[in-house]
């Protein structure tokens, strides 16, 4: 239940905010140095980092709960214990992969 709602919230967030950031990012790379500098200025301020780290979490959470939904679509994993285990696993896994991604990307660039 909770994970199912999370799937919708993260999916909607990725669709609206995520694709807006992706489009802005690609446009800024195409448009030139000034446009890209504006993008990175906002992306590296605290609110930019909140959005980008939030999107990273939404990406991993949606990916993992999406796999869970694909498995459930083929009719597997409906036993209560199994279902609950994988639901919790998507949350733990999503947080872990988010931390790993943020750590690696910030590590690469500093």
């Amino acid at each position: 239940m909770t994970v199912s709602i999370l799937h919708r919230i993260t999916g909607s967030g990725l669709a609206v905010v995520g694709l807006a950031v992706l489009t802005w990012w690609l446009w800024a790379i195409a448009a030139g140095g000034d446009a890209y500098a504006t993008f990175t200025t906002h992306a590296t301020r605290w609110y930019g980092l909140v959005v980008l780290i939030g999107l990273t979490w939404a990406f991993w959470q949606h990916l993992l709960s999406g796999i869970r939904h694909l498995v459930m679509d083929i009719g597997a994993g409906f036993e209560l214990k199994t279902n609950r285990f994988f639901a919790v696993l998507t949350i733990v896994g999503g947080l872990f992969l988010t931390a790993l991604t943020v750590f690696l990307i910030l590590g690469v660039n500093q």
Partner: peptide, 21 residues
């Protein structure tokens, strides 16, 4: 969605095939 997607693809094509800026 279609407008944003077209804008993103235009940007990507410009990066790949446009003159170096």
């Amino acid at each position: 969605g279609i407008g944003g997607g077209a804008w993103a693809l235009f940007s990507l094509l410009k990066i790949a095939f446009g003159a170096a800026a």
